[in-house]
Design a protein around this nucleic acid. Structure first.
Lengths: 131, 131
DNA sequence: CTTCCAGTTCGAGTGCACTCGAAGTCAAGC
DNA sequence: GCTTGACTTCGAGTGCACTCGAACTGGAAG
């Protein structure tokens, strides 16, 4: 037993479904996972770590296409360090831009909220004075 | 002519396609737009403003389903002020949470970037000393 | 009058990221 | 030895938000 967890356990650990884990493998986002004697996947710590990294990239909005590209670069070895650096730098820019955008939209929400708060108060008063 | 712009002009103004504008109407995200004598849509300033609000809600990740709900509340009149307020407050929470998440992921990206930066430098030196 | 463009409706198609179902295999527990 | 349950592959299905194509109409310019 000792080394590696099954696809079900791995799914629980990282918060994806077994289906999705297999799909990630099939799509080339993770390198082929080692199998036990019965042909079942055994996820090692590195695999889990890699999945967690992928998930973070996903939550920042990186498309699967680009995650695959990154995975390929990693597989290709040290010669691609520059490319990987660039990929991250570019993605960082996008995330920063996204945060800015969200902040702007947040302001709008705040304005709307205070506006609706006022209107709701005014409505209350109207009802009070009307009786 | 005076009042209102065509669907094409409106699309240019707000940055959606004509297709999408008609789709928004069909989905109940905007109330039925007024038509000219030939049955063509004429978007007035209020319509454009409403679209711009919708777009901001979309960029913050509000699903179309909820945008429709909001549109229905507005159509239903002043009695729904509280509901609308609540909808915005809840959505605000989500946007805040999303910003936090992105900030965390940004840290991870920064770490990766400095790591790759170092590795790339080390590689450079190796090449220099190797010759 | 013809050409052209921008508009119209309706339903079907697209891309993304899963998500699921069918049909089968394998090892462990009773 | 049979059942159970987690695994296997493969291909098809889902949900979202558009996006497009076909077939048509109406008004303006040449």
């Amino acid at each position: 037993m000792a080394n590696g967890v099954t696809v079900g356990e791995a799914a629980d650990m990282v918060g994806l479904t077994v289906h999705t884990l297999r799909w990630y493998e099939q799509e080339g986002l993770v390198e082929p996972i080692e199998r036990d004697s019965a042909g079942r996947r055994r996820y090692c710590d590195d695999d889990i770590g890699w999945l967690r990294l992928l998930i973070r990239l996903r939550t920042t909005g990186m498309p699967v296409r680009e995650m695959r590209r990154y995975a390929e670069l990693v597989r290709a070895g040290d010669a691609t360090l520059e490319d990987r650096l660039q990929l991250f730098v570019e993605h960082r820019e996008r995330v920063l831009a996204r945060i800015d955008e969200l902040k702007q939209d947040l302001e709008m929400l705040d304005i709307k909220i205070s506006l609706y708060g006022e209107m709701a108060r005014a409505q209350q008063e109207e009802m009070t004075s009307a009786r």
